[in-house]
Design a protein around this nucleic acid. Sequence first.
DNA 1: GTGCGATGTATCGGTCCGATACATCGCGGC
DNA 2: GCCGCGATGTATCGGACCGATACATCGCAC
Lengths: 212, 212
Amino acid sequence: MLEFAILGLLQEAPMHGYELRKELTAKLGAIRAAISYGSLYPTLRRLQAAGWITEAAETPATAEEVPALTSRRGRVVYTITAEGKERFAQLIAQAGPETYDDTGFGVHFAFFARTDQATRLRILEGRRRKIEERREGLRDVLGRAAERLDAYTLELQRHGLDACEREVRWLEELIANERSGRAPTVPRSGTTGGRGENDSPPPPGESRTKRP
Amino acid sequence: MLEFAILGLLQEAPMHGYELRKELTAKLGAIRAAISYGSLYPTLRRLQAAGWITEAAETPATAEEVPALTSRRGRVVYTITAEGKERFAQLIAQAGPETYDDTGFGVHFAFFARTDQATRLRILEGRRRKIEERREGLRDVLGRAAERLDAYTLELQRHGLDACEREVRWLEELIANERSGRAPTVPRSGTTGGRGENDSPPPPGESRTKRP
DNA sequence: GTGCGATGTATCGGTCCGATACATCGCGGC
DNA sequence: GCCGCGATGTATCGGACCGATACATCGCAC
């Protein structure tokens, strides 16, 4: 999962670890807490060993300009390689069962702009199927085993069931949009925040790269 | 987390591993997938080593009745000890930061029937605070960094923001109920499933033990 | 009689987290 | 002038948990 996210992000621009974590947090903030350095750095090491990324000490501006007096601990900038891009494409193509769990789906969705439409559709439908199964499980428990459980546990299941139904509806909208080639914008019913007129959806293009 | 859940469940009845997993899945189905044996068995080992639980080969009915012909691999039944109950109470009392993340909160909530009211309130408020923070983070990203992100990432954030707002409202209801001493039932607006008149909320008592 | 799904116990490698350590930089307050 | 403090930045270590895998029994349907 982390591997996938890193390869995805580094395609937008080379970055050093700290920056990577910040971007990752911004992009995935909806689905998981900030990722830990205890996972990030070893993963970067692993990706470098595999040849998907290269690491390079940051260039000290114009080299002569900066006096080596302070000798600041160089930031290590990571850049994705051609093999890394291939690897990313390959990871997108093979959507296994782990692609449909909460984290896996979220991460894949976050990089849908780099995913072809057929795969997007496949993933959305796989996720829907998975959530429908969870929903049925919760309905079963609430129906059959309700008397065995205390009021708090039941309330938890009801809340979970609610979330499932809501997500299925969300996915349905996204799937419908996907099929009709529209942008991934789901109509919101005023409940969200306040003003809701700042959307202006861009077309679902694949390109989104920072160019200096 | 697993330790907490196991100690909580074993207070309802002694169980063997497979059964434990099934009950755990039923009780926590709303918040996480089925737990893995790769975590369950080592954890049981650890709990036994610490003295919180005892393990015993299942008694073969009336001993003489059953012929040892088949010599079925005895199921190992785990029973919580007095120290284990103490440990559980202690784990409830000290609600650290990990009590408020998604999984931690869910597991604690599932055992609210064994938690005193003051602690319930504390945990609910801690969770609310945490979700409010996440919500603010998402609003920031959607407000400030919107133009940097693609349409899919934005849609993901919006969906997450929605979920946050919904959960905060849910928690508000639960907190209000808790303060007024009512049962943990949140009014549902028909959206859930179908019939919604089978509630009959029991009083929020602490007792819920299967007695044979 | 035989295959097959549920029941049941168990291990292993790998991913990820949380705590911790350490160093630099810029800024505001004293 | 200088001191602390929060942001920036890299890194490791132990432990929790997962997914795959292995292996054995039981009951039932075909």
